[in-house]
């Protein structure tokens, strides 16, 4: 139990009157990769976005239940969303580097936090880009615009940007769905390298991807968590019929 870093209990989310999440109970151990799978509109992205309070940006959202990060209630009135998002970083579906240089993109969080030491920043840039497995490709043009990179490189720079603020948890919202297969597999390699040091939760539409990289897989449907287990079990021997139907492509 003590290894659990993030717990959700009876989580409901409403867009206006529409109930999008219907009582999710799901816990995450520290380190490793968990994949959230399920048909479109099943609530997996919505769920992911409750974990760093990105849903706060959408008007008319009501959330009940509790999410605790290392024992702290993320939705307590005293919770500091800025701090939460530093510890729980996020990578989006569409690579969204800022229109600045690669270097500036990676150190943006730190620089705004007030870090000025050039050597330290240089070191963080190199370390983060290496961790994101994109260093060799960009090290000679760190001061060129990140928008000139390919989609896959941009996405890895975005991962590096998140790593630079040293979060404990990294949320990824379909990080490869806008990328070509080669770039996707590079992102997968990146994630596999990171799984020993970070708690990674990724939403994916790509079942093969889930089976390749995830330690655990959670299957969502119609706003409910149907099943969560070791990835191997979900794919080889699911407990629920719905899971089996989805995995075998009978719907969704």
């Amino acid at each position: 139990m003590s290894k659990e870093i993030l717990t959700t209990k009876d989580l409901h989310l409403y867009y206006g009157d529409k109930e999008a999440l219907k009582g999710i109970n799901l816990n995450f151990d520290a380190k490793g990769i968990t994949a959230l799978i399920g048909p479109s509109g099943c609530g997996k992205s919505t769920y992911l976005r409750t974990l760093n309070r990105m849903n706060d940006l959408i008007p008319n959202v009501t959330i009940t239940g509790t999410i605790k990060f290392k024992g702290q209630d993320l939705y307590a009135p005293s919770a500091d969303t800025v701090q939460i998002r530093k510890e729980i970083g996020m990578v989006f579906q569409q690579p969204n580097p800022f229109p600045f240089s690669i270097y500036d993109n990676v150190i943006y969080g730190l620089r705004i936090a007030g870090e000025k030491d050039k050597e330290k920043l240089d070191a963080v840039v190199e370390k983060s880009l290496r961790q994101a497995a994109v260093w060799d490709e960009v090290k000679d043009h760190l001061h060129e615009s990140a928008l000139a990179l390919s989609g896959g490189q941009q996405q890895r720079v975005c991962i590096a940007r998140v790593l630079a603020v040293s979060p404990e948890i990294i949320l990824l919202d379909e990080p490869t769905s806008a990328l070509d297969p080669v770039s996707s597999s590079q992102i997968e390699t990146t994630l596999l390298n990171l799984r020993h040091d970070y708690t990674i939760i990724t939403v994916t539409h790509n079942l093969q991807q889930a089976s390749r990289i995830a330690d655990r897989t959670a299957f969502f449907m119609n706003g409910e968590l149907v099943e969560v287990d070791q990835t191997k079990n979900i794919f080889m021997n699911p407990a629920e019929k719905q899971t089996e139907d989805y995995i075998s492509g009978r719907f969704g």
Binding site: R85, M90, F92, N96, F100
Partner: peptide, 27 residues
């Protein structure tokens, strides 16, 4: 300026104000 830029800034742990002044305005 695309919404993804705002999300990107906020998800990095920037405050709303920092996102506006340091990400959105320069862009």
């Amino acid at each position: 300026i695309d919404t993804t830029q705002r999300e990107g800034g906020l998800a990095l742990g920037l405050s709303r104000w920092e996102t506006v002044t340091r990400v959105i305005l320069p862009a």
